[in-house]
Simulated scan of single mutants.
Amino acid sequence: MKISIYTLLLSLVLLVCLQGCQNQQSKANKNGVKALDSRGKEITLAQPAKRVVVLYPSLVDEVYMLQASDRLVGIPEQVYQMEDTYAFLSKLDPRIVQKSIATPTFGGQANNVESIVSLNPDLVLTFNTDQDNIAQLENLGIPVFTFSSKDETSIFNELIGMGTLLDKKARAEEIVKFVRDEVEKMATPLDQPQKKVYYAWSKGRVLSTSGKGSLIDMAIRLSGAANACPLEMEAPNVGAETIYKWNPDLMILWNSKSSDVYNLKELAALPAVKNKQVFVMSPSFPFDPHTVKFMLFAKQVRHWCFPSYTKEQLDQDMTMAFDKLYGKAGLLQ
């Protein structure tokens, strides 16, 4: 059987194209994917991560925002224990409902390095404060991408870095653009007196707050309010007399109860307490400031501080934001 010149030429062209594609793929595999983490360390993977262990609930949340939950092989047990987090993520993943994703932890708290290793991850995601685990895992040759979530810029950069390593960079950039646009809208000055906000830490730690330069300070300022704490400290402990001196217009609690404030005799005469201006971020999941949802934290504070930003407007903004952040409608219903 004779082979026509046309057929021969076509075969040669296809062969050249195939070799070119193989060379490009080989080059891509050789270069891998790279991203700088919160330490300024370049994390390089031969290919996008397929088996990911996440050691903090906030970072699990961001993996779901990136629509990369199929990569999860290990998560903190707290995801199953935190009622609002479990309820929401159950809408996105039947494995959360069934509690079938492994939890490589000791009693739901400290991480178990041996259990992490047994999951054969090609990437671990954690905060940069997790020094012991980071060192052990990296010594075992497991790549670790760290987060700081210290401010707006770091949250954006770290989300895009994670997205790059999970082959979800375009999705990460889409989320960042949406949040940046929302933040820009909030930058418009409000024609109302600025209020001072005192933020209290979780679990009833009313006398522990967040100072200037902190993540909470950033979110409060974004709302249009001012942080009542003038100290340049991440998490100062203060006395009741100091809070009287600062005289906040309202107090905001995280994972605490309003009774934690109202039952404190030493704060009973504080105007914010007497005027019932103590508010609780509950449920806390929609307002996690360690993620791009710091924008929603700020919107909630804005509603409490400025009556012109109504509950109806807040609810509309929340619904729209969740549709955008998770790429699925109706999640807040």
Rank of each mutant, 00 (worst) to 15 (best):
F297G: 03
Q81T: 05
K169C: 02
A28W: 06
V97R: 15
T126F: 04
R180E: 05
A235Y: 15
H303Y: 05
S148Y: 10
D315Q: 13
S149H: 15
S11G: 11
R302P: 04
Y64M: 09
Q333C: 00
P104V: 08
Y199A: 05
V144Y: 14
L137Q: 11
F285Y: 15
K311G: 02
A272P: 01
Q24G: 01
G74P: 07
Q98F: 01
L8I: 06
I252Q: 07
F306N: 15
L140N: 10
L231M: 07
R39D: 03
S118W: 00
G74L: 01
L119H: 05
P94S: 14
G204R: 08
K30D: 03
G74Y: 00
S148H: 11
N111V: 07
S100Q: 07
G224K: 11
L9T: 08
M318G: 03
L72V: 03
G327K: 14
N31L: 15
T291I: 06
E174L: 04
A329D: 05
H303Q: 14
D191Q: 14
K2T: 01
V176P: 04
Q47L: 05
R221A: 12
D323G: 06
L159W: 06
V60C: 06
Q277C: 09
E266W: 11
L159K: 11
V33L: 01
K212V: 03
A298W: 04
S223D: 04
K265L: 00
A187K: 15
G163K: 04
W201S: 10
L36Y: 13
Q25L: 11
F279N: 02
S223E: 10
L332R: 14
Q81L: 03
V16I: 13
V73H: 08
I43N: 09
L9R: 13
D217S: 14
I43T: 15
T319S: 11
L314P: 06
V206L: 08
G224R: 13
K34S: 13
S214F: 07
L18P: 03
N227I: 02
L15M: 14
I252K: 02
Y80M: 03
W254I: 05
M218S: 12
D181M: 10
K293L: 11
E62A: 07
H303V: 02
F145E: 07
T126W: 01
G108N: 10
K324P: 00
A200E: 01
V183I: 14
V301C: 08
K274H: 08
V73T: 13
S258P: 00
D217R: 13
L89K: 08
I96K: 04
C21I: 09
K30F: 13
I5T: 10
